[in-house]
């Protein structure tokens, strides 16, 4: 048996690792990933404090996108295809799904924000105080969550 920790020949062991990773891509993984995706989407909607709730609508659309885009390698339909063709189709799929998301959700949200005079990135250079620092929240050093 090959010692999984052998670092003498990284190329060799990396190849092994990649092979095993490829084999591990199964339907089970696809299902888990999708579930995780939906859970994260729900979580993001829930954590209103970090303003992510605004994107609730967008994330509502993420589920189906993830189903189609995220596990695309796992779907048997792709396996028989030429690599280039699969890549092209993937690109078409991404553009076809994400463009409406962008145009129908993000753009109107952005326009709405601008109409209300919001400047979340502080892009406008007028009326600035003597100091441009933003105070830090204690949570910056005390939160250990991914958000």
């Amino acid at each position: 048996m090959i010692d999984p920790f052998a670092i003498w020949d990284p190329l060799h062991s990396r190849h092994e690792l990649q092979q095993r990773l490829a084999q591990a891509k199964s339907r089970r993984k696809v299902a888990t990933q999708t579930l995780v995706a939906l859970a994260v989407a729900a979580l993001l909607v829930a954590v209103g404090q970090v303003q992510l709730a605004r994107f609730g609508v967008a994330f509502g659309l993420l589920g189906p996108i993830l189903l189609l885009v995220s596990p695309w390698r796992g779907l048997p339909i792709w396996h028989g295809m030429q690599h280039n063709l699969a890549q092209l189709l993937q690109k078409v799929l991404v553009v076809a799904l994400l463009t409406p998301l962008f145009v129908l959700v993000l753009w109107p949200l952005g326009l709405w924000a601008r109409l209300r005079g919001e400047d979340p990135l502080r892009l406008k250079p007028f009326a600035r105080p003597a100091s441009l620092f933003v105070p830090c929240e204690p949570s910056d050093t005390q939160s250990w969550r991914p958000y």
Binding site: V40, V50, V94, W107, L109, A113, P120, L121, P146
Partner: peptide, 26 residues
């Protein structure tokens, strides 16, 4: 780092600059 917070920044940026940024978004 906090990946979800970074993701939040990217979405916020897209929202702030839309309709520019479609290429970056895609």
């Amino acid at each position: 780092d906090k990946p979800l917070l970074k993701f939040h920044r990217i979405l916020q940026t897209q929202r702030a600059v839309a309709p520019r940024g479609l290429g970056q978004f895609l």
